[in-house]
Design a protein around this nucleic acid. Structure first.
Length: 268
DNA sequence: GCGTCGTCCTGCGCGC
DNA sequence: TGCGCGCAGGACGACG
């Protein structure tokens, strides 16, 4: 499932191939999921940005917003399960999405009413605007479980199920703890952990799971899954303390943690 | 206003 | 071997 490192890897590949080219046509197979696509035709791609897990194509006064869902990718070769085909001058971009959770819409720039998560999104985790103090204040405002709060994209952008589990493990914080119960020291630890995990994942080109759905634009898999410490490792030993990694369901998401070094009690 | 839960969708793995 | 079921999950909208 593409999270920040996977989406950023795709953005970096697309940028030199697409920026400066004019869109000649845009075909797709579902009006409900891919909206106002005709508006993009004839416009130039001025830049490709990323906010959290969203890709934003600048088309002068318009913006093409793409969310890859859990199985989507943008590629320069066709691959399988193509849902949208973007024809540019001298280049074609394929939006492949086996499970059809992805979305694409062409909108006036900055008008994110159709994407409330994007409108409310917190700071980019690898930018200077993501500070430990601001993160702590944001966590204080919510009584949800810390994992649920992180998945909302409000305290910080770009985390999905894999990197929340990995970051919480690294920071030794139980995913079921109430967001507002974290101390300033714990928020600092989590802030550091999120940045460390995402930087490393980005270096390795993201995570490619057994389903092989996500591949780097080069066709290679990412390699961060080799360094997953808890995600997908229920029943195995915690690499830090040796206790058995536990799996539960939180907010409908599989959630992996070490019950010994990520205890419910906050005194750690 | 906040939090929770159901829905969308399809490929894959497992059990019989 | 082949079938059918259950699981995976990000974001949105409905509901309490």
């Amino acid at each position: 499932m593409p999270e920040l490192p996977e989406v950023e890897t795709i953005r970096r590949m697309l940028e030199p191939a697409v920026v400066g080219r004019r869109i000649l046509g845009l075909e797709h197979d579902d009006e409900r999921k891919y909206r106002f696509t005709d508006l993009a035709v004839g416009r130039y791609v001025r830049a490709i940005r990323r906010r959290g897990k969203f890709l934003l194509f600048d088309l002068d006064d318009l913006e093409m917003v793409v969310h890859l869902g859990m199985s989507g990718s943008l590629r320069l070769d066709q691959g399988s399960h193509t849902r949208v085909r973007i024809e540019l001058e001298g280049q074609t971009v394929f939006f492949n999405d086996p499970r059809r959770f992805g979305r694409l819409a062409v909108l006036p720039r900055g008008d994110y009413a159709a994407f409330p998560t994007l409108a409310r999104m917190g700071p980019e985790p690898l930018s200077r605007s993501f500070t430990a103090a601001g993160f702590y204040r944001s966590l204080q405002r919510s009584r949800r479980a810390i994992k649920t709060a992180l998945l909302s994209q409000e305290p910080v952008a770009g985390l999905g199920n894999i990197y929340t589990d990995e970051s919480l493990w690294l920071a030794r914080i139980n995913p079921l703890r109430k967001s507002s119960s974290l101390t300033l020291e714990e928020a600092r630890r989590l802030h550091r952990a999120i940045r460390k995990v995402l930087r490393r994942a980005l270096e390795l080109g993201g995570s490619t799971l057994g389903d092989g759905v996500y591949l780097r634009p080069s066709g290679e898999p990412g390699y961060f899954q080799i360094e997953h410490r808890v995600y997908g490792r229920a029943g195995e030993s915690c690499p830090r303390c040796g206790a058995t990694i536990f799996k539960t369901v939180l907010g409908g998401r599989s959630t992996h943690f070490c019950p010994l070094c990520q205890p419910r009690a906050s005194h750690m």
